[in-house]
Design a protein around this nucleic acid. Structure first.
Lengths: 169, 169
DNA sequence: AGCAATTGTTGTCGTCAACAACAATCTTTC
DNA sequence: GAAAGATTGTTGTTGACGACAACAATTGCT
């Protein structure tokens, strides 16, 4: 623990005090030093995640679909007949939470729960017919969102990002 | 692309006894196709963000500091005397939320609110003496966490990531 | 002086993750 | 084949979090 004598504590010199007398505070938000925060992957990723989430929501606002709902429908569309547990595990969401997500999607007639014959505890998940066509539209909008990402960080950077984080899917 | 979905539960066999050694199939989670989800930056980022957040919490569990608390203390440590509004704006958190964060940190004697002379509405935020030494320890643990990130995605990739997402800090 | 804006604070609402508990239904074991 | 154990879907609770709204105190503006 250490140290009474701080070694590199505030590299920002004493005069960094923010002269607050006059009226110099408008958008100095980004003039404030982040110090050690810059260089932390978690912080950058968190900020980026917030941005990308908001853009997704905005881009898909006309169809009222949020990222989690989109991921659920995509997985069901690609793997019809999955159980709720399988979907929850695959997407890393609590099965308790998936219940509400499916309730909502089922109320909107996008997905349906079919009682499984082989295991009467579980439900086989399927897209409805309108769910299929809806998902196609969602995918078009999601592609548009993805283009926003390219515009934001660059086409090459987006691909590099997917390559780096590919192991987390 | 895409490839249909071969994944199906036991296909309706009347007597489906796992004909082989016990030991059920544990997690076929990653055998399930994600289809269009792969290739979505948001999904990859979300999963990565969850991982990195959890590792941060785990690594700093001994000091009971979470990412947001760490970011608040880091900014205050690097810019003593900031107002709550300035900190909130810089970190992109609601000032209403910052109130609770500071309440918690102040209760733990890590930061202090000093009544500003120049503007009696606002508080100047400072680290306490124990707060300074505590932050030094937090930074060491955070550096350890950052090494976990390197181990996970590679040193070069982490740097590339920071470069790509640098604009979001 | 008077009125708009800012700061910190409290409170509400809706989202979300992490659990705990439960009934119904398999699976295992004796 | 019946009891014990595990799994699936469900409901409910808790706590963290963001988005807002309202408010008192205090500036700033004119």
């Amino acid at each position: 623990m250490t140290a009474s004598a701080p070694q590199r504590e505030t590299p920002t010199s004493p005069a960094r005090k923010r002269a607050h007398s006059g009226k110099a505070r408008r958008n100095d938000a980004h003039e404030i030093g982040l110090d050690a925060l810059v260089g932390h992957a978690g912080y950058a990723v968190r900020r980026f995640q917030i941005w990308i989430f908001q853009d997704f929501v905005k881009t898909l606002a006309s169809v009222d679909i949020k990222p989690t709902q989109y991921s659920v429908m995509t997985v069901i569309g690609a793997n019809p007949g999955l159980t709720q547990m399988a979907v929850a595990n695959r997407l890393g969401i609590e099965r308790a939470r998936l219940v509400h997500l499916l309730d909502s999607l089922e109320r909107r007639k996008l997905v349906k729960r079919v009682k499984s014959k082989s295991d009467r505890r579980s439900h086989a998940l399927h897209l409805t017919a309108p769910g299929e066509t809806a998902l196609a539209k969602f995918k078009r909008l999601a592609a548009e969102h993805e283009r926003h990402v390219e515009d934001k960080i660059g086409k090459g950077n987006r691909e590099k990002l997917l390559e780096i984080l590919g192991g987390f899917t």
